[in-house]
Computed example of a mutant assay.
Amino acid sequence: MSSIQVRPATLRDAKAIAQIHTVSAQEAYKGLVPDEQLKSMSSVEKRQAYWREAIEYCEPQVQVAVDGEKIVGFVGYDRSRDEKSRPTTGEIWAIYA
C-alpha cells in the first residue's frame, strides 16, 4: 500500500517543487537540447520564484504528492488557456515526479 498523499501546495513547498521541476527537466531534455541551453534552464531560484507566485495566486492551482514528509511530485492545473474551450475545460499546466 502506498503512503503517498496528495494535498494543496503551500508557499513552504515552493523550493521542493522548484528542485523537482529542475531535476526532472534536466533529465528529460539531456541529450535533446544543447548543454548550454540545459544549464540555463537549471536555476532553482527562478523556478522557486515562479512556483511561489503560482501557489500564492492559485494560477495555476498546485497540488503536491507527499511520501511521509518528503515532496515527491507535483501538478499544476487550472482552466484551459485556449479561449475556445473556456469555461468548460481544464488543463494540466505541469506534472512532475
Score class of each variant (00 low, 15 high):
R47L: 07
M41P: 12
V33T: 09
L32N: 09
S24V: 02
V23I: 15
I17M: 06
V23W: 00
S42R: 13
Q5E: 14
Q5F: 05
A25M: 08
I20Y: 05
A16C: 12
T22D: 10
S42T: 08
Q26I: 05
V44T: 04
A9G: 14
A9K: 11
I4A: 11
V23C: 06
L32W: 00
I20G: 01
K30A: 06
E36C: 07
A14F: 01
K39L: 11
H21T: 01
K30W: 10
T10Q: 14
P34G: 02
Y50D: 08
K30I: 00
P8G: 03
M41D: 07
M41A: 15
A16K: 10
Q37M: 10
P34K: 10
Q37G: 09
M41S: 15
L32E: 07
A49N: 04
K30S: 09
Q37D: 06
E36F: 02
E45M: 04
S42V: 08
L11G: 12
S40K: 11
Q5N: 08
E45N: 07
R52C: 07
M41W: 13
I17Y: 02
D35E: 10
W51P: 06
L11W: 00
L32I: 07
R47W: 14
R52K: 15
L38C: 09
A28S: 15
S43F: 03
P8H: 04
P8V: 00
Q37L: 11
K39I: 08
S43R: 02
D35P: 09
A14K: 02
S40F: 10
V6K: 00
I17V: 14
S43I: 10
D35R: 04
Q48F: 13
A25E: 03
V33F: 05
L11A: 12
I17R: 04
T10L: 03
L38P: 15
V44R: 01
A14C: 13
I4E: 06
V23K: 13
A9L: 03
I20N: 01
A14P: 09
S40Y: 10
G31C: 03
R12S: 13
Q5T: 15
K39V: 09
S40P: 14
A28C: 12
Q19S: 04
E36I: 01
K46V: 14
P34H: 06
V33Y: 12
A14T: 07
A16N: 13
K30Q: 12
V33M: 08
Q19D: 12
S43Q: 08
V44G: 04
R52L: 06
Q19C: 08
A25C: 14
K15W: 13
L38M: 07
K30Y: 14
P34I: 02
D35L: 01
L32S: 06
E53W: 08
R12W: 00
K15L: 15
R7F: 06
V44A: 02
R7P: 05
A18L: 12
S43M: 12
E45K: 04
P34Q: 02
S42G: 15
P8L: 05
K30E: 10
R7L: 00
E53F: 02
R12L: 01
Q37E: 04
V44H: 03
A28V: 07
V44W: 07
E45Q: 09
V23G: 12
P8N: 11
V23R: 07
Y29F: 09
K15D: 13
Q26A: 09
R52V: 02
R47C: 05
